[in-house]
């Protein structure tokens, strides 16, 4: 098992390296990013001071270097104008649009994103598992139809609409806070219990809004998988053994049906991040979604490059987690890894 995880980590590092190259190429591809625009403006003015300043900026951000060298400097494996200073050293670069270091801008947003997404995934799984299982076991009965109906509503309702509705009634009936990830008074404050509680309270509505459609899809998929498994001979064996139906379902077919369920964690993460941009804007969530949107529009490439890289890391970690869980769940995968 340890070897399996180690091997996966090694492949993960390789994948990340390739992804970082791709990200760098992509953010550099379209002409007219914010920095070159400013340099062009300065050059065009023709004034000596401006031209000198333009040269200085270009040198500062290694724009006078070939692209591959720029990439290496960005990653921090090649000495730039300030020595080794790139992502590997923790220097995430400079946002030209906001005129602040990238690290400052994304700092809290990154953690908020991680918290929001993991809570959403947990929410999705906690609700999808029993709902899907019940819908399958009681297939084509009232319970199944109700679960299916709720699922379709969840799939079909636009998220921002759901957000507005939930904020309205949440505030009216339960006194839930409206908008944002935390109360204003906690913004920028060090972590404390009060702050954690406040964040949790703010999380309730966004998690439901972002998670509902994913959950609905998951319920449908689990139901289909489990229905397939319920007809398998080993379920009959369990019944012939005298196992009570509920225990039999949980122990045998449900565990088999979990495979695709678990394998989805990796896919869900990037979907949640990119899919929740609009919702984050509507709900005023301080996640990296809106920042990413903004930085892509203005072609603020250190900022967008880093965020894309971060989402990739999130995805790969999700894949790793789902692979490890799969190996734990299914001995066949474990043994194939051992290469009998």
């Amino acid at each position: 098992m340890a070897r399996f995880i180690l091997r996966r980590c090694v492949t993960m590092i390789w994948t990340l390296a390739v992804v970082s190259v791709l990200v760098f190429i992509i953010v550099n591809l379209p002409p007219g990013d914010i920095l070159s625009n400013r340099i062009d403006e300065l050059m065009a003015s023709g004034e000596e001071a401006s031209v000198a300043q333009a040269r200085f900026i270009a040198a500062q951000y290694s724009l006078d270097q070939p692209l591959w060298k720029q990439y290496l400097i960005w990653m921090g494996v090649w000495p730039g104008p300030n020595g080794f200073s790139g992502i590997l050293q923790g220097d995430l670069g400079w946002s030209f649009e906001l005129d602040r270091p990238v690290a400052d801008i994304v700092g809290e947003a990154v953690w908020m994103t991680v918290v929001l997404n993991f809570t959403t995934i947990i929410f999705v799984y906690v609700f999808a598992l029993p709902l899907g299982a019940i819908a399958a076991v009681r297939a084509n009965t009232l319970v199944d139809y109700v679960a299916t109906f709720i699922g379709y509503i969840g799939l079909a309702t636009p998220n921002f609409l759901l957000a507005l509705v939930l904020y309205n009634y949440g505030a009216q009936w339960f006194g839930l806070p409206v908008g944002g990830m935390m109360g204003r008074e906690f913004s920028g404050q060090p972590l404390s219990w009060a702050k954690i509680l406040d964040v949790l309270e703010h999380l309730i509505v966004p998690v439901i809004v972002i998670g509902t459609s994913g959950m609905a899809a998951m319920v449908r998929r689990l139901r289909a998988n489990l229905l397939d498994e319920l007809g398998k001979p080993y379920v009959v064996t369990a019944a012939a053994k005298g196992l009570p139906p509920a225990r039999a379902v949980v122990k045998y077919p449900l565990r088999m049906a979990l495979n695709p369920f678990v394998a989805d964690i990796g896919n869900m993460l990037p979907q949640l991040v990119s899919g929740s941009v609009i919702v984050s804007v509507v709900m005023g969530l301080q996640t990296i979604g809106p920042i990413l949107l903004q930085s892509l529009r203005s072609q603020d490439y250190f900022l967008s490059g880093f965020i894309l890289l971060f989402v990739s890391v999130l995805t790969l970690v999700g894949m790793l987690v789902s692979d490890i869980l799969l190996a734990l769940l299914d001995p066949r995968i474990r043994f194939a890894g051992r290469g009998r």
Partner: peptide
């Protein structure tokens, strides 16, 4: 399973692989 037990045809699919 207690007083009457059954043996099935396909041992591979009649046993849980997990």
């Amino acid at each position: 399973g207690g007083r009457i037990a059954m043996i099935f045809q396909e041992p591979m699919s009649s046993l849980s692989p997990l």
